[in-house]
C-alpha cells in the first residue's frame, strides 16, 4: 500500500495567460482547488484545457506575470498510457523512483489497481484497460499531492470506462490527492467530481458544485439537471445531445 496522503495542499493559480503567436489560449485565468478535492475541467476542443493541464504539470514553463502555487509531487495520467514499451509493467511503474525499494513499491501500487498478475508483462501484451491501470499505478506510486488526469478514459470502451471510474474514485478516496480531471465528457465529470469547471475562451466560464451523494447514477434527478446545465454552458442544446 502506498502511504496515506494526509497533507494535501491547496492549488492556487493567479493571472495565467498563455499565448501561441496571435492566439491567446488562456486569458488571465484564476483557479483555486481545495486540498484533496476532486475537480473536473470541461471544455470544447481548443478551449485551453490541455494547455492549463500542461502548465499545472510544469510540462510548459510558467508564463511571465502568472503566480502559481502547486502542490508537489505531481503525477499525471494521459489519454494514451505512455508506457515505455521496452520496460516491463513494474519497471514502468517504478520509473524514476529513487531508492532500492522501487520494486516492492511498484508491486504494491500494481496490486491496488488490480494488476498483480501482470507485474512482469510487456506493455505490448496489455489490454487498453490494463495499460491505463498501469499508468494509474505509475502515478500513484509517487504518493502525489496533485493528481492530473488528461482525458485518461477517452480511448477505452464503455464497460472498461465504468470500471476505471470506480477505481479512480476508490484510489482518490484512499490517498486523497488534490485531483483535476480534464475531460470532454459531461457525464464523466458529473459522475466523478465534486466540482465541475467549464473553460471557455481561456477563462473559467462556469463553476458548478456537484453535491450528489456517491455512488452517483445517471437516473438521479439531480444528475440530469446538472448535465443539462453543463451542456448548455458548453453550447450544446439537449436536442443535439440526444
Amino acid at each position: 500500500m502506498a502511504p496515506q496522503n494526509n497533507n494535501a495542499a491547496p492549488l492556487r493559480v493567479r493571472n495565467l495567460t498563455r499565448r501561441f503567436g496571435e492566439n491567446t489560449v488562456l486569458h488571465g485565468l484564476d483557479l483555486d482547488l481545495a486540498p484533496g478535492s476532486f475537480t473536473a475541467l470541461l471544455g470544447r476542443s481548443g478551449s485551453g484545457k490541455s494547455t492549463l493541464l500542461r502548465t499545472l504539470a510544469e510540462l510548459d514553463p510558467a508564463p511571465e506575470g502568472a503566480r502559481l502555487e502547486l502542490p508537489r509531487p505531481v503525477a499525471v495520467a494521459f489519454q494514451e498510457p505512455r508506457l515505455l514499451p521496452w520496460k516491463t509493467v513494474w519497471q514502468n511503474v517504478s520509473l524514476g523512483l529513487p531508492g532500492r525499494d522501487a520494486r516492492p513499491r511498484a508491486e504494491a501500487a500494481l496490486e491496488e489497481v488490480g494488476l498483480s498478475h501482470r507485474v512482469e508483462a510487456w506493455p505490448a501484451t496489455l489490454s487498453g484497460g490494463e495499460a491505463q491501470r498501469t499508468a494509474l499505478a505509475r502515478a500513484l506510486v509517487r504518493s502525489p499531492r496533485l493528481l492530473l488526469l488528461d482525458e485518461p478514459f477517452a480511448a477505452l470502451d464503455a464497460l472498461t470506462r465504468i470500471r476505471m471510474h470506480a477505481l479512480v474514485l476508490e484510489l482518490w478516496r484512499r490517498h486523497g490527492p488534490t485531483t483535476l480531471i480534464v475531460t470532454h465528457d459531461v457525464d464523466e465529470a458529473v459522475l466523478l467530481a465534486d466540482r465541475v469547471l467549464v473553460l471557455e475562451h481561456g477563462r473559467i466560464a462556469e463553476d458548478v458544485a456537484v453535491e450528489l451523494p456517491r455512488p452517483r447514477r445517471h437516473a438521479d434527478p439531480g444528475f440530469a439537471a446538472l448535465r443539462r446545465r453543463l451542456l448548455e454552458a458548453l453550447g450544446v442544446s439537449l436536442e443535439e445531445a440526444a
Binding site: A57, A75, E80, L84, L95, G96
Partner: peptide, 21 residues
Amino acid sequence: PKLVEAGRIFGLDRRGLIRHV
C-alpha cells in the same frame, strides 16, 4: 516525444532520459 515527456514528468533527469527512454 510523448514518451520523453512522460519520463520527464516521472522524475528522470537528462541522464535517466537518455538511458531509459
